[in-house]
Amino acid sequence: MKKFTRVLSVLLVVAVVLGSAGAVLAQDKKPVVGVVLKSLANEFFKTLQEGAEKWAEEDGRYELNIKGMNSETDIDTQLTIMDTFISLGVDMIVLAPADSSALVPSVVKAQQAGIPVVNFDVRLDADQLKAAGLEDFMFVGPDNEEGAYLAGMALAEKLGEGGKVFIIEGNPGADNAIARKAGFDKAVAEGKLELLESSTAHWETEEANTLVANLLTAYPDVQGIMCANDSMVLGAQKAVEAAGRDDILLVGFDNIAAVQELIKEGKVLATVDQFGAEMVQMAIEVGQRVIDGELEPVGWEKTPVELITIEDLE
C-alpha cells in the first residue's frame, strides 16, 4: 500500500510538472478557443464542426478545442465540458447551449474565471442571465424566425392568397422550433394563406412521413407544406410522392445535401441556409472584437440566413 501511494504521488508530481510546462508552452503559442457544441449526431453541428476546423487551420490565429455530445439534450455533458475548459484555462469559450437556462451558471463561472464567453446558435435565457447579473448578454446567431419567414413567403408567393398549408413543427419547447414556427405563422398571415393544421414531427423523417400521410387524408385539398427542418422535408416529400400529389409544394430549413438534391429535381421549392460552417468563425471573430475592446458585449449580432431555391443550386 505504501509503495502504491509513493508511485501515485510521483505520478501526480510528474503530471503537474508536465501540465504546467504544457501551459507555459501553450502561452507562447496561439490562443486556445474552447468550442462547446450540441449534438455531433446532428448533421448541422457536424458541418459546423468541420467548417470550424477547416477555418482554424487556414486562418492560423487560434487553436480550437471542439467538444460536443451525441444527443441534443445531454445537458450534463455540456456542463462537464464547460468545467473542463474553465480548469484548462482556455482564452475564450464559444458556446451553443443545449439548454437555455441550465448553462447560465457555467457561463457565470467562466466569466468569473476571466474567460470571455460568446453565446452562439441558441440564445441563453434572458431572465436567467439577468438574475445571474449578466443583463443583455451578447448573442451571436441566426434569426430563425426571419429564415422561416423567408421560406414561408417563398411558398406564399407561389400559392397566392388563400393557399392552403400545413406547418410541420420541430420539438415542442425548443427555441429554434418556436422561432421557426413564428416565422411560418408570420408568412401565413402576410401571404393570406389558410393554415389547415400545425403539428410536430419532432424533427424526424419517419415521423414526418407518417404525419403528412395522415394529414393528407384529413385535408386532401392542401397545397403547400412548411417544415421546420430538412429531415422532416425528406419524410414529407415521400408522403406527398406516395399519395401521387406532385402539385403540393414544400419548403424546409437547414439546406442539407439530400434536400438540395430534391430542390434540383424540382420536388422541393426552397430551404434556408444559416451558414453553419461559418458560424463558429463568426462567433470567435465577434469574441475577439470584444476582447480587443472594439465591441460592447451586448445585443444580438445576427448571422446571415438565406433562402435557397433551384436558381442558387444550379
Binding site: L40, N42, K46, S231, L234, I256, A257, E261
Partner: peptide, 16 residues
C-alpha cells in the same frame, strides 16, 4: 450501435 452508426456515416444522411 448508435455510436458506430454515427462514426461510420460521419453523422451524414445517405441518399440517392
Amino acid at each position: 450501435a448508435r455510436g458506430a452508426a454515427l462514426q461510420i456515416s460521419g453523422s451524414r444522411t445517405i441518399f440517392a
